[in-house]
Design a binder for these strands. Structure first.
Lengths: 220, 220, 220, 220
DNA sequence: ACTAACGGGACAGCCCGTTTAT
DNA sequence: ATAAACGGGCTGTCCCGTTAGT
């Protein structure tokens, strides 16, 4: 969620369409699909490695391509922009669906908390190392950081809409947006803290503290 | 502060020498020196202004040179690198001062609220008409919008630091950062709402609602 | 004719083999053969159409493939090269035929004038409304405009050849080419004027004026 | 005239400004100016040489740059596009000025004829070899040919305007445009003929024939 | 048979920082 | 001292034609 669903940024047409279908067509991948997915991951993996070694700006697409043993043009077939390689489209439960799946009787704030708890591990558990690297990049490199905020802002809007549906309030209700933005602010703070501490902190615990603070009213 | 901290991923060489000489030799200016210093400051000023408006990467040396009314090459006579122009300037101290000026006995959250009330007009709405237009621009143009978040993020850091001083807690305290980010999230939400409603809403009232929601604990 | 003659500057290899087999084995088609031939012709037809509209360079294989409802790769199964699609089709014989059909005793210039009168409606104005729109487009869009001149230039060549036959002069006779180009220049001017005036003028009348001016010698 | 004044095609700003001033500041060139002009010509010369050797498409900007001993980027400083290297901005008497300088009492058609006569030699005399090559390219390569027609069309418009001024007629007068387009048609025919005959024909004589044909009324 | 994926390469735009001329 | 010109590099786009998978 934090850095996913990036492709809505692109109005470049159908270049990534086949990738989008990777996750959907899980019935029987097919050699082609699997190969493509593998290439996709290889590029990303090598890119991250190079970014951490040399820095984002100092790494060229050509180097990435070479490391991934593809041609530079192929790189752009998979990622429309050098930036995009950092903002993975992990094909996992969207925040949206996770919240929608929460039982209807559950209080809204609780639903969000639980959804976040379910999501964060699946997003980072499989390869914690690399997501950490990715997040660090997204935070340290100005151009990437900018996109990070963009995405969070989009998520705030989604969250506000979901809350509106769940509570039956007017989607334009100011309180709704306050809640949504505050929620995401503290979640982001938790994640950032986790990143700053090099993944050594317990993300789940931080998340709980974050929501607790929200519910209690800001303590100071 | 914000900008300066971006570049810790870059390996920098030892090329501050010429700058050092400038600032050190202040004993007896001399016309030439003063002129040089003035150019130096003009460049820096204009550069920072552009960085804030467009973002560091999106700002080109050429633009800076034009704004400072020099040629691109002259830029490099004053600053060996584009980066160097960024490493001396300090932050806009407005918000900082405003909070520090609040009476010490006042509860932290109250101090922030009051400071915000004073700050918002100066930051966004000194001339309501014009700043509305500017904000609309900042929200609609991706590059500027990104910059807006950057600035707010910087302010969150400042706020956290101030809270730490005022409450005597460890600056690294997680709760502090939660509060700071939540505060700014709702403040920004208020401002955005105000903008979306074309300035017809009462910004002060929105701000009060925002803080009320925070203090009460998120309402949903 | 026009298009085919463009490529004399290109060194071509010997890769027409597959095409040759297609056209030769026409003794007893067979379903598969016929289907293949049909696809072959569809590609060629659509390609030529696009070339005429957009110009050769500006037309991509991808566009041709889409128009022919095949994949870009299939294009290359039928034509080893983008160039090859162009080397078999003959010209649109309309103008040619129209002039040839004029009675032999008629003076050349008169034959041309009459042929033009018959030709213009079919070339530009069969459905006045639509062809007006098409012409406007062809004039306003640079790429299309360029194409228009190309076609006219081709027609000039055709006209020169016809005049040579009708008058019995050497096809390389300079006077012939002068006449042909001047003819087309004024005809096109008439058409353009008609378009500029939104089709309100009488095209036939303009055409008569154009030829009158030519015959009288330029008036100024 | 035939292939000149190309830069009005570009709305790219002030990249070529300094070049434009080359011809104007003829008082005392200055080393810089001279060097720049020399580079400009070297690029053009080498490009033409390569184009005729390898063909336009087969020649890369990189090769041209290497031949001219500059970097590829520098190439684009001088010519915004690979095409532009063919369409020289020879800084010589514009058609416009030449016609305007003709005595007022002279019949319009005569003024145009004389202007053409004055212009053509100066345009081709200095380096007939290379202009011939350039024209051949402009005629044979589709993309370039398109631009050639564009320019001629622009010149027709200019000519029509000049004729309107000289004769005092309404600029929208149909006869004016007929004359202008017919003039240019025959002039172009003369030039093309000259090119086709490899510059062996007498251009001035062809020109005279062309105008004679015009004045007499098309002969057939 | 068909087509997705790929390779290779060109163009053009931009940008930073150095060298060269004034 | 100032600025023009330049070099070198990189991104991203496009396109043609081949190869490998369905």
């Amino acid at each position: 969620m934090l850095i996913s669903s990036n492709f809505h940024y692109l109005q470049r047409g159908d270049r990534m369409s086949s990738i989008a279908t990777i996750s959907i067509a899980t019935s029987r991948p097919g050699l082609r699909e699997r190969k493509r997915l593998k290439t996709y991951q290889t590029i990303q993996h090598e890119a991250l490695k190079l970014f951490t070694q040399l820095g984002y700006d100092a790494t060229t697409v050509e180097q990435i391509a070479e490391a991934a043993q593809i041609s530079p043009s192929t790189f752009f077939r998979y990622f429309p922009t050098k930036e995009d390689v950092v903002f993975t489209e992990e094909d996992d439960p969207t925040l949206k669906r996770l919240i929608e799946e929460r039982p209807a009787h559950e209080p809204a704030i609780e639903a969000v908390r639980q959804a976040m708890h379910e999501w964060l591990p699946t997003a980072f558990a499989d390869d914690s190392e690399e997501s950490l690297a990715r997040l660090k990049l997204a935070i340290s490199v100005p151009a990437l950081r900018a996109r990070l905020w963009e995405q969070q802002q989009a998520n705030v809007a989604i969250l506000a809409e979901l809350l509106s549906r769940r509570t039956g309030r007017d989607p334009a209700d100011f309180a709704l947006h306050l809640t949504a933005s505050a929620c995401f602010a503290v979640v982001m703070t938790a994640v950032l803290t986790w990143v700053v501490q090099d993944g050594k902190a317990d993300l789940a615990a931080l998340l709980d503290q974050a929501f607790a603070a929200l519910e209690a009213g800001v303590p100071l």
